[in-house]
Amino acid sequence: MKAYVARRYGGPNVLSLEDVAKPEPASHEVLVRIVASSVNSGDVRVRGFDIPKGMRTMARLALGWSGPRQPIMGTEFSGVVEAVGAEVSRFQVGDRVFGFPGGKMGAHAEFIAMPANGRIAKLPAGLSFEQGAALCFGGSTALHFLRQAKLRPGESILIIGATGTVGHALAQLAQHRGARVSAVTSTGNVELLSERKFDRVIDYKTTPLASLNLGFDIIADCADALDFKSAQRLLKPKGRYLSVAGTLKEMLAALVPGPHGTKMIAGPAAERVEDISLLAELAEKGHFAPLIDTIIPFPQLPDAHARAQSKQKRGTVVVLHQ
């Protein structure tokens, strides 16, 4: 089968289209013919070895020393079941599905094998393959941080970077849970977010964060715009600061409580099996719709990587395989 591989770390130019072995599904697995996948910040960081200082030795041991140990990127996909293992009853050949290999990656290829009881679910009838390929990375990350923050109905949440993949998911899912959402973005994205009917849309170019005089129960920083110290002025007592883009520094700092009972939450998001079915249900009921920046054909996947690491994208870059 055809797959894009990265044999060394570097820019989008290190990706090459190669013939690799087509996976054979084990007895408990399904083989999926991929129709669409995404390129997100996880793919960009691994491909470029964009790892914060203090974590690079650990990252090389985990990811690969001189190049990615898993050379095929791609953390999420949608497609059609091509074959099922002998023990599989949950899926049938021809089912439309979406899935989240997450850190195991492997979705920038023609086929992928997934455990039938793993992070894979049937694609709701009303969703396109392109939407299905953009559900999991932002959605599962948002669910993780909302759980960690213990968001309650009626609480106020400030979301910085609300047109990013994770930020947009956070805004919708927090709103669905009854929060009062203030979404921060740039001038060009104000109209887009205003259409989503959030409680407040803030243009940081005309209303700097430092000028806000509101207190928030939660701040979700998806753009690395603040730190825990500077967030204190905007947090209520016992408020929570979600360092979604945090590094090792933030993870270590999160171990120490802040003043007035405030708390910082940082670290990688859990990849839970049950979240995939939950995201399907939320999307089917209209509570969550991924924001798609652009759709790029599979032969141009390096361009999708370039777009994903740019500062101009809104939401998820989707790759159409066929």
Rank of each mutant, 00 (worst) to 15 (best):
A3Q: 02
P12N: 09
L15S: 00
V20I: 15
R33E: 15
N40D: 15
G48Q: 11
F49H: 15
I51R: 04
K53G: 11
M55E: 14
M55H: 05
A59H: 05
A59F: 02
L61W: 03
L61I: 08
L63V: 14
W65L: 13
W65M: 10
G67T: 04
P68C: 09
T75I: 01
G79C: 06
V80I: 15
V81G: 06
G85Y: 04
E87D: 15
R90I: 04
Q92N: 12
D95Q: 10
R96Y: 09
V97L: 12
P101S: 05
F111S: 05
A113S: 15
A113P: 07
M114W: 01
L127P: 02
S128G: 13
S128K: 11
G132I: 12
C136G: 11
S140Q: 15
A142Y: 10
H144N: 14
L146D: 11
R147E: 15
Q148N: 08
L151F: 05
S156F: 04
I157F: 11
I160W: 02
A162S: 14
T163C: 07
G167W: 10
H176W: 09
A179G: 08
R180T: 14
S182H: 12
A183R: 07
T187L: 01
S194F: 04
E195C: 12
K197C: 12
D199T: 05
V201C: 11
I202M: 03
D203Q: 07
Y204W: 11
Y204N: 04
Y204C: 07
Y204V: 06
T207W: 00
S211Y: 02
D217T: 05
I219F: 02
A220C: 09
A220S: 10
C222K: 06
A223G: 03
D224N: 14
L235C: 09
G239V: 08
V244N: 04
V244E: 10
A245E: 13
G246P: 03
T247D: 13
K249Y: 13
E250N: 12
E250G: 01
M251Y: 02
L252S: 12
A254Y: 03
V256G: 01
P259W: 05
G261Y: 05
T262W: 07
M264C: 12
A266T: 07
A266S: 15
A266V: 03
E271V: 08
E271W: 01
E274W: 00
I276H: 06
S277Q: 14
A280F: 01
E281T: 09
H287I: 01
F288N: 02
A289H: 08
L291V: 07
I292H: 03
I292P: 03
P297W: 00
L301T: 06
P302T: 00
D303I: 00
R307W: 01
Q309I: 07
L320A: 15
Q322W: 00
